[in-house]
Simulated scan of single mutants.
Amino acid sequence: MAKAKPKSKPAISAAGTPAIDIGIDAGDRKKIADGLSAFLADSYTLYLKTHNFHWNVTGPMFNSLHLMFMEQYNEEWTALDEIAERIRALGFKAPGSYAEYARLSTVVEQAGRDAPEWMEMVRQLVAGNEAVCRTARKALQLADKAGDDPSVDLLTQRLQVHEKNAWMLRSLLE
């Protein structure tokens, strides 16, 4: 009869909780969490911009864009939680302030209360969705290299959404 292999005891943190041991070393988890934090910042900034444009769109495309923007920002809002929770599952704090998002984001904010005309809103949202895609791809490469399949899956799904949003918005300008 073969002897059962003794189970190793998990390392204990200074706080007395078991150390994270999910099969991804701490350095790789940190790199992935940093990439996801930048992705969260871009996603949140795009969410806020989309919501702003939903409130402030005017002109002949009002109804169509008002509804499209609402559909997009609602979907984006739900995704924010998933991204932040993935960062937490990797053992790091998720960024959660405007200052952190401004520092980390590559999406350009729409400053002030003077909303652009609808075509410029659409152009900016195309650019914002594509910026989110670029940031997602950087984080995805880190996650893939480390064998972090849950992060790869999350980022792949988000890429599909943002690429589709960019395409649909761009189609309005053609």
Results as ranks from 00 to 15, higher is better:
Phe53Val: 07
Ala99Lys: 15
Glu100Asp: 14
Lys145Val: 08
Glu82Gln: 04
Met70Thr: 11
Val108Met: 07
Arg134Cys: 03
Tyr98Trp: 08
Val122Gly: 03
Glu75Cys: 04
Tyr101His: 06
Pro95Asn: 06
Phe62Ile: 00
Val161Trp: 03
Ser105Ala: 04
Leu67Trp: 02
Ser105His: 02
Val132Gly: 02
Asn74Thr: 14
Arg88Cys: 04
Leu159Lys: 06
Glu117Asn: 01
Arg158Glu: 03
Ala166Gly: 09
Gly59Ala: 09
Ala79Ile: 07
Ala136His: 01
Arg137Gln: 12
Leu125Phe: 02
Lys93Val: 09
Leu65Ala: 05
Gln157Ile: 06
Val57Leu: 09
Phe53Pro: 00
Asp148Gln: 13
Ala131Glu: 13
Val108Tyr: 01
Ser151Trp: 10
Asp149Leu: 11
Asp144Lys: 01
Leu154Tyr: 10
Met119Ile: 06
Pro150Lys: 14
Arg113Gly: 15
Glu120Lys: 02
Thr106Leu: 06
Glu163Thr: 14
Asp148Ala: 06
Leu90Ser: 04
Val152Asn: 06
Gly128Tyr: 02
Val107Leu: 04
Val132Asn: 03
Trp118His: 11
Asn52Asp: 14
Phe62Asp: 08
Asp114Glu: 09
Phe92Ala: 02
Gln160Ile: 07
Ser64Val: 06
Ala102Met: 02
Asn56Leu: 12
Lys93Met: 12
Lys164Ser: 13
Ala89Glu: 09
Leu140Thr: 10
Glu71Gly: 13
Phe69Leu: 11
Glu163Ser: 12
Ala166Val: 11
Asn52Ile: 01
Asn56Val: 05
Ala136Val: 01
Leu67Ser: 15
Tyr98Asp: 01
Met61Asp: 12
Leu155Ala: 06
Ala115Leu: 07
Gln141Pro: 00
Gly112Glu: 06
Glu163Tyr: 07
Glu109Ser: 08
Ala146Asn: 12
Asp114Thr: 14
Tyr73Val: 05
Tyr73Trp: 07
Trp118Ser: 08
Tyr101Arg: 04
Leu142Lys: 01
Glu120Leu: 08
Gln157Tyr: 12
Met121Asn: 00
